[in-house]
Design a binder for these strands. Sequence first.
DNA 1: CTGAAAGCGCTTACAG
DNA 2: CTGAAAGCGCTTACAG
Lengths: 340, 340
Amino acid sequence: MTSDEFVEGGKPTLEAVGALAGVSRATVSRVINGHATVKPEMVDAVNAAVAQLRYVPNRAARSLVRRRTQMIAMVIPERTAEFFADPYFAEVIQGAALYASSTDQTLTLLIESDADPEKTRRYLTGGNVDGALILSHHSRVPAYVELSDTVPMVFGVRPLEPAERPIHVVDVDNVEAAAIATRHLVARGRTSIATISGPLDTAAGIDRVNGWRSALADAGLDAGPLESGTFTPASGAEAMQRLLDNGARIDAVFAASAQMATGALEVLRAHSIRVPYDIAVASVDNNYFSTSANPPLTTVDLDTANKGAVLVQTLLRLIDGEDVPPFTAVPTALVERRSV
Amino acid sequence: MTSDEFVEGGKPTLEAVGALAGVSRATVSRVINGHATVKPEMVDAVNAAVAQLRYVPNRAARSLVRRRTQMIAMVIPERTAEFFADPYFAEVIQGAALYASSTDQTLTLLIESDADPEKTRRYLTGGNVDGALILSHHSRVPAYVELSDTVPMVFGVRPLEPAERPIHVVDVDNVEAAAIATRHLVARGRTSIATISGPLDTAAGIDRVNGWRSALADAGLDAGPLESGTFTPASGAEAMQRLLDNGARIDAVFAASAQMATGALEVLRAHSIRVPYDIAVASVDNNYFSTSANPPLTTVDLDTANKGAVLVQTLLRLIDGEDVPPFTAVPTALVERRSV
DNA sequence: CTGAAAGCGCTTACAG
DNA sequence: CTGAAAGCGCTTACAG
């Protein structure tokens, strides 16, 4: 008797597995779903049959009866590609997709339509997904906050304004990340530490300024000058130039992103200011920009891929009705290279 | 009588829509699926009921009976994030996701596991998806070619060796793209045109060299010197340096990627060689690197987002059993900036 | 042209 | 501890 007898044509079904193992399909189902009430010998027989037939449960059937789509959406801004010089999204997506693949959830990418913002909301509320991860730009966040009691959601960034209702966010502690970098500068004996901040209308921009400021205060140092950029290399170069033009005597710069640090480094080089001898530069982000900068950047690793994984993990907990804290912090760590 | 009477609790079903419209659920199903055999007045009644109840078909139920998962996978290399300085994947994904969202297919990202390559194959052959888009590195392609008669597949790159069985690829015509750039250099009066090629073990690398060579031959010009890079800025800089070191008199360079062109430009600047006055530089890729180069690059736009869309479109045709040509070319176009 | 009915492949009360 | 049966929400022959 070959196992072929149990699969006529297409994919094997529960029925076929049951026939091979000599049990009902209800029992097979129980074994597959780990319902501990099955006799060990039946468990073994079923598992053997599953392996022999290479049985894979039909997602649609399971999803239909469980009333779960088994899908989660990752919502990302439409203009991502234009800003893809920023490796952030790629890393989060990669981390999230990898984690999702170890569960029976499917991760789908939902690109926000700038032309039709309602489309995304309709999709999310139309029962297409069990939950959503929101990585939109901060300006879009409030609109999603409203949906968060219709469909489970986890945000990748804290809203600027305190949300009107309890929400769940997974992010690094940006205050702490900036403080880590700044403290390292202090520990290396720097005393006049400027910052090139991110945009001050973003949570990350604000929080990193606060981290820089508080680390300085803790060390009994005055806050150095602050110039803001937009997280891009060009904006970092311009901010560095303004810092120099303003004539303040500084011996270190904390840049709120590796991209801005890269731009700053170019300006310093153009002025023959030696890094780290004359001015040390520390930043946040451990990515392509940090390693290929000249000199390579001492920076804070935000572990963005891990953030992607934790986002999914947290969302699944929420979907399962577990109690999830409003904020889950992803750990960060200093990585020392040659710019400090 | 309010429409609430037809939806007790959860999402409205076909049954509820039928009750509101005064028809059977079979008829509602026919209207929703556009089976032209329904009387116009019933069509209207059904559509009104659908709108009123905001009815959205249950994907799982539909998928179960149609024996289609309604999902397609995009297979991408695990190490993507590390190379994400290359905007290519982000753009393809964006184009593909956007197109998929206009259909009732869901696009899911499948990251190849370097540790367990079988995992991806099992997923694809386990009935999880209706088809797959393969964007892997070239070395992985042959393994997928084997699967292409088990599950419909479209490749984003032509295999290096002619495939053992008929496959479907969607890509730009790399020979033509390179020829466009080179012809433009020729039209501008350049006569000694070198190339910084991509890796010569990739289809894009090889094809772009051939395009450069044939454009030159067509113009009655000798092929200039060739140095190879790996598509990265650093490799472009090194190749440019070798070109200079070798002392050949050249008045133009065709770089097979914008990233390599960026690196080459830096070397030329360091040598005070003026672009385009002394040496003109044309490239391929219209992305962040092309616009932020100094000077901005005259280059061939590969319309990568559109490639993503066409990949999905082609795969859906294949899944529907249509006749699809083995190669679908995505159009390219020259964009003139200041490097030529 | 339309409806009643079967069935897609699962899960899970309900009996036993 | 296990099985027979109902049912998740659709689509589609099959009658009429």
